[in-house]
Amino acid sequence: MLRSIIDSPGWANNILKDPVFMESIFSIALAYSTDGVNPFRSGQYTLWPLAFKVLNLPPALASSTALIILGGVVHGPKKPKTLQAYQLLIADEFAAGRRGLKSTSPCGNYTIHFSTKLVLTTADGPANGLMLNQQTANAAWGCIKCTIMGTYCLHRQLYGQVRRYLPLDHRYRVDPSFGTPEIRPPPEKRTLATTRRHAAYAELQKAAGLKAATFTERTQVAARTHTHTHTHTHTCTRTHQPNLHPTCQGGKGQCSLDTLDYFNYIEASMIDVVHNMKESWRKVSVVCVWVLLFSRLLVDCISLEPPYHCLSLHTS
């Protein structure tokens, strides 16, 4: 019976068996999430706050909104094309936190040493894609956890294929009411090694000048070019695959969270089906407000080095 994340096997593998983390009782396990919000409830102006949740608190406190840490805000007139540059700052923070931090105890009497660890990331579909630099829904390989391949039909990618997860001798696999017989095994899981390979392929292709555009654009282009030959978008899948080489399998490039050596960003990413959003991108400016990350829990963090009080940068 799992009552909390503390009981889970993932926690046991990532936290309890981690000697660096278990050195100090003050160590902090964090979950990272980001999502787009529109402060004006109209228009396309979005803010992407990068937020953190402390996992090794009592459950009531860990789920408290007041104890969520705001790491930074990426804002701009449209959805950012990529978050990797900003996540690199976060990854650097976590790498520094992994090397060990020094602070004063809450009562102020003695010095404590602790470390921080990024344990998991959680986001909804499009945010997951931005976070992990992968293609999500409406792409051929739209799942960040497995290599299930969708089929293009009715202007959308259809995944389904639930019967692949059933046992091979299950009656639903040959039930005619479900359509053609399903003989395929479950889709292959993504692993860190394969995802790194796909990301490297994507980086190579981008370097070779292949633009890694979104799938929606490509279908639009494909539909425009096929206007005279096909009057409709038929059920054929092959002509509408993205131009990126199939070896990428949905990877769009390297994920900056991969710079953390301890962090398996494929296994530790959670999918949430809260909502779907449309893909869009434009010039993004950023103000990354890096408030003292841990000041909300520990009284004195002034001894952090280097002092990340506030840093602001503009990109075009």
Binding site: L2, R3, S4, I5, I6, D7, S8, G10, W11, A31, S33, D35, P49, A51, K53, L55, P59, A62, S63, T65, I68, L70, L120, T122, A123, D124, M270, D272, V274
Partner: peptide
């Protein structure tokens, strides 16, 4: 990773 309420995004959405 245990029950969903420990790692779903509702908390972040609320935030």
């Amino acid at each position: 990773w245990g029950p969903l309420w420990t790692h779903w995004t509702y908390i972040f959405e609320r935030f």
